[in-house]
Design a protein around this nucleic acid. Sequence first.
DNA 1: TTGCTCCTCACGTCACGTGAGGTGGC
DNA 2: TTGCTCCTCACGTCACGTGAGGTGGC
Lengths: 248, 248
Amino acid sequence: MLTIGRLAAYVGATVRAVRHYHQRGLLAEPERDSSGYRTYDAQAVVDLIRIKTLADAGVPLARVGELLTASPERFVEAIAEIDEALRARIRELEEQRHRIAELAAGDRLFLPDDVAAFLDGLRAIGVSERGVQVERDTWILVAARYPEQAAAWARDKAALLGHPEFRRLYRAFDEAYDWDPADPRLERLADDVIAFDRRMARETGEPDEAAWTVDDPLTRALASGPPGSLSPAWERLTVLTQERAARG
Amino acid sequence: MLTIGRLAAYVGATVRAVRHYHQRGLLAEPERDSSGYRTYDAQAVVDLIRIKTLADAGVPLARVGELLTASPERFVEAIAEIDEALRARIRELEEQRHRIAELAAGDRLFLPDDVAAFLDGLRAIGVSERGVQVERDTWILVAARYPEQAAAWARDKAALLGHPEFRRLYRAFDEAYDWDPADPRLERLADDVIAFDRRMARETGEPDEAAWTVDDPLTRALASGPPGSLSPAWERLTVLTQERAARG
DNA sequence: TTGCTCCTCACGTCACGTGAGGTGGC
DNA sequence: TTGCTCCTCACGTCACGTGAGGTGGC
């Protein structure tokens, strides 16, 4: 006969866990000796290993209780379910290994693939890392707010990167970040942006919604946090392009 | 800007979890709008994904807090540790898949391999399944009480299975279970057991401790639960062999 | 006497879940 | 007005962990 400590040690459980299983009614309370100590027999070892094996596999104790009294067929059925749950959990853990590895670097974790690909495209045409970060933050908000459409929009914009004038405008926008807000080049840039928008609208037959440039109203509205969060030159550019767009 | 619901949905967390991360000081409390609603920016998305990715990987929230402010080198180091922990967890789950599979049938889960092999040996020489069960329960108690020695004892006994007289005695013992306690064959069996013990003691030069048969005092003492747990014939056999052993 | 194992409460832990009761914009 | 999302307490959950205070055999 075994004491609770020896029983627990043999199956790799704690004494407290064995008492817990008694409390929950999973393991039958054994006889006591003259000192009030519980005295376990071999059947208790078998029962406890059954309980612990199921519990370790993630089966809730309430369900363990059912399984102990289930028919052999139901038991085998349940084992198959538990095995499937374990396999699913393993797949999850493999996923998580990927995700924590990506955590050290890269935007893939925060954005749909198509958006991350567009950001890589910006890097490829020479947009500064700072400019890419501003874009990234904007896209995070867009993707959170319009999960269905974000990827398609990113593909549309990525396609425009094949257009030389679009690339020139993007790079100019990027450089303008540090300019003096009074710099006359901002006026010319605003003109060029509007001209490009109109040209694209004509070519594609879509309305003149200015969805083609870095300065389209949608992304602008989403990105604008408290006033002053953009650079002074970019604030100015926003005003200028909106004036020109309104003038028609 | 995002509400808490949209933020949570985007990263796959619950609203409650996000509030919890605020409470724990892991995620900075953002500005509120005129209604008192929290308004999140892109940085909050990045921070939350970082938190959730680590938390999902099983990192305690207290440690997540440290990691968020850790240096890049410490962070990379910690990622490696976490990855190792995930791999260890995966190995554990694979182990558990084995164990629940074995739960449906077999003694391997309850006993050291050498003991299970000995039980298979008993089956091979024709011992009844009932007899094997009694042995199994005895060995469970022995293994729990003497984890170091059990395997070696089992190997010793398994070696004896090569001995024809040992096999004969074991099978006779097995059959004797149902006999009438007054059956004269019990006396002859007791004589044969003692004779075999003495012979083995002479051959191996070890003391006459009667450790060779199913009836050795050690296993008997361990297995004997409340009186009457053995069959009447086996109780009688125990008495008879002890008498003969004492007479010398 | 000291050390060890056992006993029974009963509160603590961890990461949220789940109402309870209320507000604000469509 | 109804429905939805948000807000702040605050208690509940799950499987034990961890003392608190005490007993019994070597």
